[in-house]
Design a protein around this nucleic acid. Sequence first.
DNA 1: TTGTAAGCGTTATCAT
DNA 2: ATGATAACGCTTACAA
Lengths: 362, 362
Amino acid sequence: MVYRPGRVLSNRAAVIGMNRPTMEDVAERAKVSRALVSLVMNDSPQVSDEKRSSVLQAARELGYRPNLIARILAQQRTHTIGVLVDDLRNPFFGEVVDGIEAEAADHGFRVLILNGHRDARREAEAVETFLQLRVEGMALVGARLDDSDTARVGLAAPCVMVASGAVHSGVDTVGTDDRRGAELAVEHLAALGHTRIVHLDGGANVSAGERRSGYESGMQSAGLGDLVDIRPAGDDEADALGVIDDLLADDDPPTALFAFNDLLAAGALNRLADAGMAVPGDVSLVGFDNTFISALRHLSLTTVNQPTLAMGRLVVSTLLQRLSDGPSEPIRHTLQPELVVRSTTGPPRGGAILSQARPTPR
Amino acid sequence: MVYRPGRVLSNRAAVIGMNRPTMEDVAERAKVSRALVSLVMNDSPQVSDEKRSSVLQAARELGYRPNLIARILAQQRTHTIGVLVDDLRNPFFGEVVDGIEAEAADHGFRVLILNGHRDARREAEAVETFLQLRVEGMALVGARLDDSDTARVGLAAPCVMVASGAVHSGVDTVGTDDRRGAELAVEHLAALGHTRIVHLDGGANVSAGERRSGYESGMQSAGLGDLVDIRPAGDDEADALGVIDDLLADDDPPTALFAFNDLLAAGALNRLADAGMAVPGDVSLVGFDNTFISALRHLSLTTVNQPTLAMGRLVVSTLLQRLSDGPSEPIRHTLQPELVVRSTTGPPRGGAILSQARPTPR
DNA sequence: TTGTAAGCGTTATCAT
DNA sequence: ATGATAACGCTTACAA
């Protein structure tokens, strides 16, 4: 038997309870070698039933629990993918993560989640943590990292940006065609007869740029030149909502609002209600994401759908492909958005188009 | 210098990219010992500036990144707390996690998040993963583990149940007085003159039991005996919402609904709108949690507030206390809920109380 | 201040 | 089928 010096029960270990029974302890109790215990734990077929059961019994008696950390170090595989979520409070991201976890589970991968708190610095830290933990791949869901950051990350580990909006160099991407989604929203409003359409900008959100340019091109192809983009000064796009009051007080106020996402649209709905404006009577409103919020009857928000679950699953399959294929040209998956018309959009007052039947007038 | 056999670049390691530069590589390049590199990496004050900078340079040149897995194994400390979240799509949990992360960061702890998917089996697996990863403590946010499970977990690692509703043996708990919260809701409705108050039950949610009994005791002390508790058959409490239609078709229909949480209340609001019922004209409605959903003007849901951020921070400080004090009697922190009256509650039609001014009549 | 070497708890290779 | 033993990449006494 191997010489094994007495276990050092430093007060550290004693305090934090990491001094749990090890394979060595189990081996000793079952009177077998450590290697055999390992085989049993990984239920190898080549152990005798007799030894197997005595090992299992010893393990049970000791309350043995394998140490994943040690196993990972020895195995040189974590079987883990890291998911960085920009904002845990936004249900949209939660839905994407659900898709990621479903697909990961199907392929025997663990998913570790870190919260980015809508802050580039903290997201960079989270990525670093994932890298140091040696995750086999990472999904950055809505992360606000700049191009040079992502390129560096992409070099260090397989990495797919989700809901990234713009194309990032050096990493794979899975996302909705945000530009097209924004165009859909604007086209819808233009078709209803709106001409003064204001964009409530997503500010520092990753997809904000693409949606903004979709707004611009949508306006352009509708022959509308009067672009108004409301952008927040700080990091919280809701800060800019106050501007709505000013806009509405204008001589020639906008008749429609296109918000960066459903959360922002809901905030806008609040402001409009406070200002006594009818929606869609006085102002039409379109959101983005089609989260459950937009489906609430009392909001019944017209919005742009993103196939969140499909995106999540696609993230993992992309990651796995990259894992097996090695480095190559970035993979780009762009899913198509869909306009979901609900009750917050209608023709403008005195607009060119006749009013149309609508579900639940509010 | 230590004899070091050639690095084994198994194809595994080659594929997953775990064959990154190690301390040994850095040491070799900087012509120092591995131990010194370690000292530099943990910026120990006792290294000469000269060595320090040459080590740092070597590290930079090689693109060295410390291996957290190895460090943890050697150090016997993970500096990590595991957070199990029952449902990432429920904003309430996201808010609690924000509090947890804030306090954890203040104390130099990493936070790892695992998603429970509203499923007891998956939550048990997640806990097992945390245990195998040797987290120093865990927070179970809304986890639906039964008493024997939690007791076992509590034995294995410091563990605090959050938003647990009932008292679980063997683990510390941080939560709101759910029972009292439910009573507040019922008292409010009773004071408005409602007598037929129905409870939309939370089913398998952890706090459901406490809120149910709060509903019962609230009804009792208001002298109301006609308890109606709508409980779902499956795991999705929203399934039971259909019953609302039947209830309203009753001879003597309920005039008020108390929902398990804001999400469920929002669902109920949908059903009521579909059925053409006015809120609070025909039916009053109270939710629970005071998530941002209830604050949306178009819902403007009367609800019961939980101090989520404070709860989150308290979770971590409780964990740290347990970490330093070792085993002892379970710690119980119960925060007080508060009724937030908005626009979904009012006197019943023909009720005893005069109608009162309300913000935004809907 | 720096180096040596013994762990940490596994897996995996090679004997037997 | 089972056992020895060398990794895995780091930390940390202890020595120099």
